[in-house]
Write a protein that binds this DNA or RNA. Structure first.
Length: 436
DNA sequence: TCTGGGGTCCTAGGACCC
DNA sequence: TCTGGGGTCCTAGGACCC
């Protein structure tokens, strides 16, 4: 626990939706919902305009549509989000080299690695405001919420206190006073299940938690968790800001619009996913020993099976063969809504290619049927497209063999709207180059 | 037709070894 | 005719996070 406020947490506001509003001026000031647009999709991010209608992350898209039917429902353009994210992370590293990205839209920054010489409230406030301005500038107008405090925990709690587009500094010494009246769910790691256990023990607030012994907490929620709760309830948090975190697993999964019933189709899909996993392993120079599959049945019961190889692999065919064998031992006769493949036990070296070959996978993929997923549709709303005469635009909607395109980017508002047949050869997905 | 996708960490039991 | 005690690896499931 530091005695000065030198840990900063930054969180980009409604990040995916904000990138869409930045790039598509017609969406500014309007409810925008990013997520799976299909029947089994859920909301990833809702703009603040959509939140006013009660739309929240992780809500089913179906429910979001009924709450906010006039919102723009978009599928998400991850290349654009990754690009915006790396610009922001670069700005943070410029301000202070010790940056720990937590996700695409969040990071910790250790101010002890910056040029600051003192950490009094006025100084770190000015630093935080400059950082927010620099982020806005570099990202084309994205806003961020910032919290600064004496630990990761406090910085993260602080960044939540004045969202969106806010900055909160928690003066050292005032942490417990801040935390005590808050619900136990402010503590990272306390989700619905833990909160319910604590509630049954009469523990609702951090102050309640503080009154419970460590032994009692361990009895209630387990060893590691109980220990953490005991200390975090007292604002004791010594976790350091770590810049490099190595991946521990790589996985690909998909939920399908309708339940899968045919084992052959499932094997094809696992084979394709294995290829995607292998591709990502190779891209990052990784290989792993443990191959896992994940299967979610029609009734949402979820099973996983794994097996560990003698040596690490990044080979599509080896992963695929393991995955299919693992599926073979499961009863999937009731129908499957989700399939996934993962590799863990990662090493940063690669065994020579002793078994299998990629051509084996390519053969199997030849007559692979397209199975629509909850996220991916052929002409997904939000997708960038290019028309040979009209130029760049984005898909506004699609249906009945027709796709509607708005020819508008941040540079050309407001753009015209046109509809085309889905198979119109003049219309193609626009694929910008990936950053990195 | 409630309930995504990509991760991390923890627990608990069994195998196996010394 | 009773039954140790660690440590490590592996597997399955669950909770949680964004």
């Amino acid at each position: 626990m530091r005695t000065e406020a030198s840990v900063l947490h930054i969180d980009l506001d409604a990040f995916f939706a904000a990138v869409e509003q930045r790039d598509k001026p017609s969406l500014r000031g309007k409810p925008v919902i990013i997520g799976g647009v299909g029947g089994r999709g859920v909301v990833a991010t809702a703009s603040y305009e959509a939140r006013a209608f009660g739309v929240r992350s992780a809500m089913s898209t179906r429910e979001a549509r009924s709450r906010c039917p006039n919102a723009a429902f978009l599928n998400g353009r991850f290349h654009a989000y990754r690009e915006a994210s790396s610009r922001v992370m670069a700005v943070l590293r410029e301000a202070s080299p010790l940056v720990e990205p937590l996700s695409i839209d969040e990071a910790f920054v250790d101010l002890r690695a910056s040029d600051l010489e003192t950490y009094d409230v006025a100084t770190v406030t000015a630093f935080g405001e400059q950082l927010r301005a620099a982020v806005r500038e570099a990202s084309g107008g994205l806003t961020a919420s910032v919290g600064i405090g004496s630990s990761k925990f406090i910085a993260k709690v602080a960044s939540d206190l004045d969202k969106p587009d806010g900055l909160v500094v928690v003066p050292p010494g005032t942490e417990q006073q801040l935390l005590r009246p808050m619900a136990v769910t402010v503590i990272p790691g306390v989700g619905p299940a833990t909160a319910e256990r604590l509630r049954r023990a009469g523990i609702h607030t951090v102050a309640d938690l503080e009154a419970v012994s460590e032994d009692e907490l361990v009895r209630l929620v387990g060893k590691a968790h109980g220990h953490n709760l005991f200390h975090l309830a007292r604002a004791q948090d010594d976790r350091t800001v770590e810049s490099a975190r190595e991946a521990k697993s790589v996985s690909v999964e998909g939920t399908y619009e309708t339940d899968l019933a045919d084992r052959k189709v499932m094997e094809h899909l696992l084979t394709r996913q294995a290829g995607q996993v292998g591709e990502r392993l190779r891209k990052h120079g990784l290989s792993g020993r443990t191959v896992s599959i994940k299967v979610r049945l029609h009734d949402f019961t979820t099973m996983s099976r794994s097996s560990t190889l003698a040596s690490p692999t990044d080979n599509d065919a080896v992963i695929a063969r393991q995955a299919r064998a693992l599926l073979g031992a499961l009863d999937v006769s009731g129908g499957v809504r989700l399939l996934g493949v993962g590799v863990s036990g990662l090493a940063d070296w690669v065994q020579d290619d002793l078994f299998g070959s990629s051509s084996e996978v390519e053969e199997e993929l030849e007559e692979l049927p397209e199975v629509p997923t909850a996220r991916t549709l052929t002409w997904a709303p939000g997708m960038d497209v290019e028309h040979s005469q009209m130029g760049r635009g984005w898909v506004w909607g699609s249906g009945k063999g027709v796709v509607t395109v708005r020819f508008e980017t941040a540079l050309t508002p407001p753009g015209p709207v046109r509809s085309y047949r889905m198979d119109d050869p003049e219309l193609q997905p626009f694929m910008p180059p990936e950053p990195d």
